[in-house]
Nucleic acid binder design. Structure first.
Lengths: 337, 337
DNA sequence: CTGTTAGCGCTTTCAT
DNA sequence: ATGAAAGCGCTAACAG
């Protein structure tokens, strides 16, 4: 009933060739006469012409489309901001995102990539929430950027938080407040560490060490960063050792557990114990006093991923680090020995 | 360097016409000889042929694509599960999702819809987090389903949580536990109520009323459902009135605030006061004792939205309600008068 | 400066 | 049972 308006219709109405119409509507009309231009625009307007992007894509061998494949999108709050950042950057560049989720299944990842390539995406973004991506073996016909995952040895582009800078900021903050004895909440055996986690921990350790601050270790009961673990382990850290004056929680869930643990132990934050954390998860809004934490720059990372994906030719492969920022709130205070 | 393998290549290698190859690879080969079939499959396999979905879409005037436009995707945990449900349903049907975010900007919504139509999506899903969608004025060339928003007077399809059923479950639960005097935390002046909210509240009210349970009203200080409000208002409800034995929080954030409020008032959950809530937000995992809450069925809704979108011809327009489910946990107990 | 022609890769009449 | 040819809507060579 509503036959699609095509470029041919516009051209006909403007009494020019499709070529002219195409040129003009795409702003490459330097040469066309003003009168022709006007007629074309008028016709397009009158007919309410909209280009068929599939046809254009077919012809140009470019779809103005990016495939975003994520391991998890719903079950964590990480994916949302990454997608948002990617979406914004894509929109600014007149690209649209195909979004898919693999649910951590490698075979599904392969399948998703195939399908997206069949759709002629111009680039792929492989986002992970775990920090570790498994890359497709084969050579891809389009650029791939790994988002929030280390790239491994290949020639891939990857975008990661600058964990080293983040760790340093957290540690420096506590050092500058005069703390001399701290606990890092969430450390488990090194074999469990993903690359980003390792960087975070090592940066913390090295910064504290340089400042001569003592780090008290309490090994995790389970290598899981949830609030239960935070509760259990913080309790032990407070119970079993001569008191630390500050703790660095390796993520906000651990910190939330620690809050509860300290409350039950009768310890006041930040008066009795300071706490600084990582991630700046939404959940921190429930904590009182408000948690000082080093934010994971997910939105910026998502944005960066599409920027890189669309400029892969002009950009060195390897890791691209996005700065982390300390969110100063109210869970830390000066330690007066 | 790697020239795309086309159907023509496959046909050539199998020494058949493109027509035959197409027919066979699409399983409409009833007529072709077994030998030809074998040759085609072999050739496709050998060349690792993959169809160009843009070309197919152009020809078939069907893209096997759905446009998902959401007002908010990152800043709330609602969108994630809806997208996941939609993603899963789409995948099962060999469709791919374009995802966009409008950030609540109506003009951006129009723009997003235009772009998706230019991309020849077969259907549109308009998801909201607020519960209220503003629909495009004009007649769309493809089916549109409103996700988590009431559809208004138009001929649209919409998917909503069954708030009435959810409200009833929450109220029935408290009634069955013997509570006779409850507070509904989060009610503000009716002019602030969105359609879903109104249904939730009215269902609560009517169920309590039928059971002869007294509902204590405390008007909200601000019409905002966050934990601060929950804290403030719960405090007042406990302070200003003869004690209620149970509260229904209209969402989990309010409940979280109430938890803190009750704790400070020296009230134990569920011993002194029972609390049941709505949403089953991730944040509830931080609450102790664990919160009994009526889950919003977002994933099922997302799934349903694509099912409807792809079968719009065979389905009555109007609202489609997805059941809500009470998650029984540990924040309620029997009231022994 | 402008228009004609061809072709992106696919599916689909329509002949054979 | 099989293939030739047309055409989806667009843009890029190439002529004029």
């Amino acid at each position: 009933m509503s036959p699609r308006i095509t470029l041919a219709d516009v051209a006909e109405r403007a009494r020019v060739s499709p070529t002219a119409a195409s040129l003009i509507l795409n702003g490459r009309e330097a040469r066309l006469s003003a009168d022709v231009r006007r007629r074309v625009f008028e016709a397009a307007e009158a007919l309410n012409y909209r280009p068929n992007l599939m046809a254009r894509g077919l012809r140009m061998e470019k779809s103005a489309t990016i495939g975003f494949v994520s391991d998890r999108i719903a079950s964590t709050r990480y994916a949302g901001p990454m997608i948002r950042g990617a979406l914004r950057a894509a929109r600014e560049r007149d690209h649209t995102l195909f979004v898919t989720e693999t649910e951590g299944d490698l075979q599904e990842q392969e399948r998703a990539i195939e399908v997206l390539l069949d759709r002629q995406v111009d680039a792929l973004i492989l986002a992970t929430v775990t920090g570790e991506a498994v890359l497709p073996e084969r050579q891809l016909p389009v650029p791939l950027v790994v988002l929030n995952g280390s790239a491994g040895p290949g020639e891939y582009l990857s975008v990661l938080p600058d964990e080293e800078g983040g760790g340093q900021q957290a540690a420096d903050h506590l050092v500058s407040l005069g703390h001399r004895r701290v606990h890092i909440l969430g450390t488990s055996e090194p074999q469990y560490w993903t690359v980003p986690v390792r960087r975070r921990i090592e940066s913390l350790l090295s910064t504290f060490s340089k400042a001569g601050v003592e780090v008290v270790k309490v090994s995790l009961e389970r290598p899981v960063w949830d609030s239960e673990t935070g509760f259990d382990t913080a309790t032990r850290a407070v119970t079993l050792h001569s008191p630390v004056t500050a703790v660095v929680a390796l993520n906000d869930s651990l910190a939330a557990g620690a809050y509860e643990s300290f409350r039950q132990a009768g310890l006041t934050i930040p008066h009795d114990v300071s706490i600084v954390s990582f991630d700046d998860d939404d959940i921190v809004s429930f904590l009182r006093p408000q948690l000082t934490t080093v934010a994971l720059p997910f939105e910026a990372m998502g944005r960066r991923a599409v920027e890189l994906a669309l400029n892969s030719h002009a950009v060195p492969s390897g890791e691209h680090l996005e700065p982390m920022h300390l969110q100063l709130r109210h869970s830390t205070s000066r330690y007066d020995s």
